[in-house]
C-alpha cells in the first residue's frame, strides 16, 4: 500500500475497510496463480495435518504488516501488537511455541498467505465479504467502534451520528480518504466535513476550533490522545455507526488459507476460551483496546455481503 504514503497507519486501515473490494479482488488473483506453482497446500480434508505439522516443528510463520497498534516490531526488534500477542497466546495453547514473524505489505498479506509464505495473518485485518472470498477468517477478536474527539466537557453533546443533525454550524473533522467521510456522505451530511490530512492536524484542528470534533475509530483516537495527554480534549463513548438501519462494523480477525478449517476451528476454540475468561481483554488492553472493542460477532456474520 505504498501508494498512500502520507496517511498515517491507523487512518490507512480506515479506508482499507472501504476499499477491501479492490484489494482483495486484485491481489487474490495474483495469489491464486502463485499458489499453483507451489506444493498443493489444501488437498486433504479440512486442510489436512497442518496443525500437527506445526506442532512437530514447534514453529508457526505469522504474516503481519508493520502497523501499530495492530501488529508491529517494537524497539527491541520483537513482533508485538494486538493481533500477534493474541495469536502467540493461542498458538502456545495449541502447542506451538516458536513464533516466526514474516513482515509484509498490508496488501500482500492475502496473496502471501495463499502462496504459503506464512501460516496465519495476524494483522488485525478487518473481515470483509470480498476478503472472505480469498481466505477464511477466525472469528473477530475485536470490533472497532467509532467515537468523537471533542473538547473536554463535550460542549456540542455529541454521542452518536444522530447528534450531528440539526446542529447549525457544526464542523466534523474527518481524515482525507477515510471511511468516516463516506459515512457523512451517506447520511447527507457531507457539508459538515472538514478534511484533515492526518490525525495530528485533526487534533490541532479541534484544539484551534477549526472543527468541533474529529470523527474516527475509538482505538485511533485513544492512541492519538495518548500522545497528546496535555490536550484539553476527550474521546466520547464508542458507538457502532448505524446507516440506513445497518450497523457498520470494523471487526478484525486472523486469516487462514482457504480449506485450513481444522486449524482455524482449533484456533477459534482457543479464542472463544480467551473471550470467556476475559484473558483476551487483558492481552490487548496495553494496545489501547477496551471493553468497547470486545465483540461476539462471528466471521460468518461479517463475511455475508451487506443487504
Amino acid at each position: 500500500m505504498s501508494e498512500v504514503p502520507s496517511v498515517s497507519p491507523s487512518s490507512r486501515r480506515q479506508f482499507l475497510r472501504a476499499a477491501g473490494v479492490t484489494v482483495a479482488g486484485a491481489l487474490g488473483a495474483v495469489g491464486l496463480t502463485t499458489a499453483c506453482s507451489r506444493i498443493d497446500l489444501t488437498a486433504a480434508e479440512g486442510g489436512g495435518d497442518l496443525l500437527e505439522r506445526l506442532r512437530v516443528t514447534g514453529q508457526v510463520k505469522v504474516g503481519f504488516a508493520n502497523e501499530a497498534p495492530y501488529g508491529f516490531i517494537n524497539r527491541d526488534g520483537e513482533l508485538t501488537g494486538e493481533a500477534p500477542e493474541v495469536a502467540k497466546e493461542i498458538f502456545r495453547r495449541l502447542g506451538v511455541d516458536d513464533f516466526v514473524p514474516a513482515l509484509s505489505d498490508f496488501g500482500s498479506l492475502i496473496p502471501g498467505l495463499r502462496a504459503g509464505l506464512f501460516d496465519v495473518i495476524a494483522a488485525g485485518m478487518y473481515i470483509t465479504p470480498p476478503r472472505c472470498e480469498q481466505i477464511i477468517f477466525s472469528d473477530p477478536d475485536y470490533n472497532a467502534p467509532e467515537a468523537f474527539l471533542v473538547p473536554r466537557g463535550n460542549p456540542r453533546g455529541l454521542r452518536t451520528l444522530d447528534d450531528l443533525r440539526a446542529q447549525p454550524g457544526l464542523r466534523v473533522g474527518v481524515l482525507l480518504g477515510a471511511v468516516e467521510s463516506g459515512y457523512l456522505d451517506k447520511l447527507g451530511l457531507s457539508d459538515l466535513a472538514v478534511t484533515f490530512p492526518d490525525q495530528a492536524s485533526g487534533i490541532d484542528g479541534v484544539l484551534a476550533g477549526r472543527a468541533d470534533t474529529l470523527f474516527l475509530t475509538a482505538i485511533s483516537l485513544r492512541d492519538a490522545l495518548g500522545r497528546r495527554p496535555d490536550a484539553p480534549l476527550e474521546v466520547t463513548e464508542p458507538f457502532v455507526p448505524v446507516i440506513d438501519g445497518v450497523e457498520q462494523y470494523g471487526a478484525g480477525g486472523y486469516g487462514f488459507r482457504p480449506g485450513e478449517t481444522r486449524l482455524r476451528d482449533a484456533f477459534n476454540a482457543e479464542l472463544h476460551e480467551l473471550k470467556r475468561s476475559s484473558r483476551l481483554l487483558e492481552i490487548v488492553r496495553p494496545f489501547g483496546f477496551t471493553e468497547a472493542e470486545m465483540t461476539d460477532l462471528t466471521a460468518d456474520q461479517l463475511c455475508r455481503p451487506a443487504a
Binding site: L176, G177, G182, T195
Partner: peptide, 23 residues
C-alpha cells in the same frame, strides 16, 4: 493548502485514490 483542510484538485485526487484504490 491540503494541510489546512482546503481540498483543491490534487487533494481531491488523493482522496479519490484512497477511496477506490485507483490512483
Amino acid at each position: 493548502l491540503t494541510a489546512i483542510t482546503v481540498l483543491e484538485g490534487l487533494s481531491v485526487a488523493r482522496s479519490l485514490g484512497a477511496e477506490t484504490f485507483r490512483y
